[in-house]
């Protein structure tokens, strides 16, 4: 079969809604785009543990601490599900992790912002995981089978992340003036960076058209962002929080909450490594990798020793 026939057949399968599986033929560009997207996604789950991990030892009570620990552990799991799915495309995990550690790979810009108060943990669960759910619910319908299955698994776990976050914010909003202020301040700092999570406008997103055509993505960045704003504004209002956007207004006709322009300069600066915490995050990842090396070494030594014993036993019997 020649290249153009193969491409045409591939497009037809996508058109019909057939899922693409690891051993199926696929255009190199489809494979590479997926590896790029999935590795960025996996790195985001892993780096995403850092801002929240920062508060595990300082959670205000045991209930909050257990929830936060479980959530952060889930995020580690999410990273592994997606690395595992990326490996089915022929990417090596060694290589993916290396790209992250040397600072070459990208991850979601939101995790380069600091978590200054306990309210940030509530706001992150509610907003950041909320935004991730919007994105991942779409990706669960992605044309690549292993990615779509990983997303289904993740979506099932995400809802508690969002709910525990919103519960924290609700509690603060029922508290003292100081606690209310703390929650509002956290929202003020995280609102815009959360909207940036959906990526540039469709008009400035070079990969979008191809990804939509291949049904890797089923909705555009702007569509997802609008949906997120529409579901989140009422949640904020219910508990007395104010969205930090003077241009926010409801459009009766479109039923959309219209919002102001994002500061794209900030977005690109953070992506290029100039956010408040980029350096800290990279250092923490590298330290964790180095500090964990003795565990990997010990497990290899143990496996070798056991294997040796097995061979010995076999020889004795023989």
């Amino acid at each position: 079969m020649d290249e153009s026939t193969r491409n045409a057949e591939f497009d037809k399968r996508i058109e019909e809604g057939t899922k693409i599986e690891p051993k199926d033929w696929m255009p190199e560009k489809y494979r590479n785009q997926l590896i790029r997207m999935m590795s960025q996604h996996a790195h985001s789950e892993v780096v995403g543990m850092l801002p929240e991990g920062n508060w595990i030892t300082r959670a205000p009570n045991l209930r909050r601490k257990m929830a936060l620990l479980a959530k952060v552990q889930d995020e580690a799991g999410h990273g592994l599900y997606i690395y595992s799915a990326a490996e089915t495309l022929g990417a090596s995990r060694e290589d993916l992790v290396h790209q992250l550690l040397i600072g070459k790979a990208k991850y979601s810009s939101i995790f380069n912002y600091p978590t200054l108060t306990w309210a940030d943990i509530g706001i992150i669960g509610w907003l950041v995981d909320g935004a991730a759910i919007v994105n991942q619910t779409m990706l669960a319908k992605c044309s690549y089978g292993p990615y779509s299955r990983a997303m289904l698994r993740i979506c099932a776990e995400e809802n508690f992340h969002k709910k525990q976050g919103y519960e924290i914010v609700c509690t603060l909003m029922k508290g003292t003036e100081e606690q209310k202020k703390m929650a509002q301040d956290a929202l003020n700092r995280f609102w815009w960076p959360t909207l940036m999570m959906f990526g540039p406008h469709d008009s400035d997103s070079p990969n979008s058209a191809t990804l939509l055509k291949w049904k890797v993505k089923k909705k555009t960045n702007d569509e997802l962002r609008q949906h997120f704003v529409n579901i989140t504004v009422p949640q904020a209002r219910t508990i007395g929080l104010e969205i930090p956007d003077p241009n926010l207004k409801y459009n009766e006709e479109t039923k959309n909450w219209e919002f102001g322009e994002i500061n794209w300069e900030e977005f690109y600066a953070v992506i290029k490594g100039h956010g408040p915490c980029n350096k800290d995050r990279m250092k923490a990842r590298n330290d964790a990798h180095e500090n964990g090396s003795w565990v990997r070494e010990a497990s290899v030594a143990y496996a070798k020793k056991k294997q040796g014993k097995k061979v010995e036993k076999f020889l004795n019997v023989g």
Binding site: A85, R93, A150, R296, S299, A303, K306, Q307
Partner: peptide, 10 residues
């Protein structure tokens, strides 16, 4: 999915 490990037990 998959995992990475030195032996079956781990």
């Amino acid at each position: 999915g998959n995992v990475h490990a030195a032996d079956a037990e781990i």
